[in-house]
Simulated scan of single mutants.
Amino acid sequence: MPEFILGAKARAAGYRLVGYDSIGSTNNEALAAAAAGDPGGLWFAALQQTSGRGRRGRPWASPYGNLAATLLIVPDADAAATATLGFVAGVALNRALGAVLPGAAVRIGIDGADGVSGGRAARIALKWPNDVLADGSKLAGILLEAQKLADGRHAIAVGFGVNAVASPKDVPYPATSLAELGVERSAADVFEALSDAWVDVFGLWRDGRGIADVLAHWRAAAAGIGAPVAVSHQGEVLRGIFETIDDDGRLVVRAADDRRIAITAGDVHFGATASARS
C-alpha cells in the first residue's frame, strides 16, 4: 500500500484519505462514495490510474508512480459557485508544486509559463482553464465532475493528475514531469503538500463568497497574460491578446479589431501556435 499521508493542516481540518497502489479512476471512486452517502472531505489518492480521464472525456495517461488524487466535497453553494472550484484547485495545486520544486533555476517556457511567485517570474504557472505548466510544458491537470444529490446539493469530485516520475508520450502538447525537471519528489510528497494547500485556498473561497480573492491569486500565477493567445472551440479558432480572467472566471481575449471577447471554454495555445495564421 502506498504511503500517502495527509498534511498536518488537512488532518486538523478533519479530512480523510483512502490510498491505492492502482485504481481505475479516483474520480469514479469519489462519485461512488457520494452516491453511497459520504458527506465529503474525503481524498482518494493513487500511484496509477488505469481508466483516467481529462476534460471532455479525453484519456489521461498515468504511468505508475505519478499522482492521481481526487477530493470529494459537498459544499453549501449553488451550481454557479461550485463551477469556480476549478480555480481553487488550480491555486492549491500551484502552491503545492511550488513547494516541492526548488526555488532556483527559474526559466520562462515556450508556452507562456510566466506567472509570478514572490514578486519574480515563476517556474510553475497556471494555464486556463485547468492545467499547470512547468517551464512551459504541462506538468499537471485538473478535472471537476459534479453529481446531484437527493437533497438538491451537488457532490463535487475535484481530480488532480500530476506527472511525478514520467510524462505521457505521443500527446499533442509539450509535457514534462518532476523527474524530468530534475526534482526527485514522490507522488506522496506532492499529495501531502496539496492536501494542506487545499485547506488554505478552500478556506479563502468560503462557499463561493471569496471567489474574487481566489481569482486574484489565480491571475498572479497565470501563464500568458498580456501575450498572444489562440483559443480553439467548436472548430473555430479565436486569436488575440490574453488580457485577463474576468470575475466569472472567463478568459478575456482582445481581438485584432480591439473587441474584448469572454471565453467560457476552449483549448488555449500560446507562443508560436497562437501567432500562426494557418
Rank of each mutant, 00 (worst) to 15 (best):
P2F: 01
P2G: 10
I5M: 14
A8T: 10
K9T: 00
G19N: 09
L31S: 07
L31I: 13
A32M: 06
A33W: 01
A36M: 06
G37Q: 10
P39H: 03
G41L: 12
F44I: 05
A45L: 12
Q48A: 14
Q48T: 03
T50A: 11
G52V: 00
R53Y: 11
R55D: 05
A61N: 01
A61T: 05
P63H: 02
G65H: 15
G65K: 14
A68K: 04
G86C: 14
G90Q: 10
A92V: 03
V100P: 00
L101A: 04
D114C: 09
P129G: 02
L133D: 06
G136I: 02
S137C: 13
G141E: 10
I142R: 09
K148G: 12
D151W: 13
A157N: 03
F160P: 01
V165S: 01
G182F: 10
S195P: 00
S195A: 14
A197T: 02
W218C: 05
R219K: 15
A222S: 15
G224D: 08
A227Q: 14
A230S: 09
V231F: 04
R239Q: 12
I245T: 08
D248Y: 01
D257E: 05
D258G: 01
G266H: 10
G266S: 03
D267W: 12
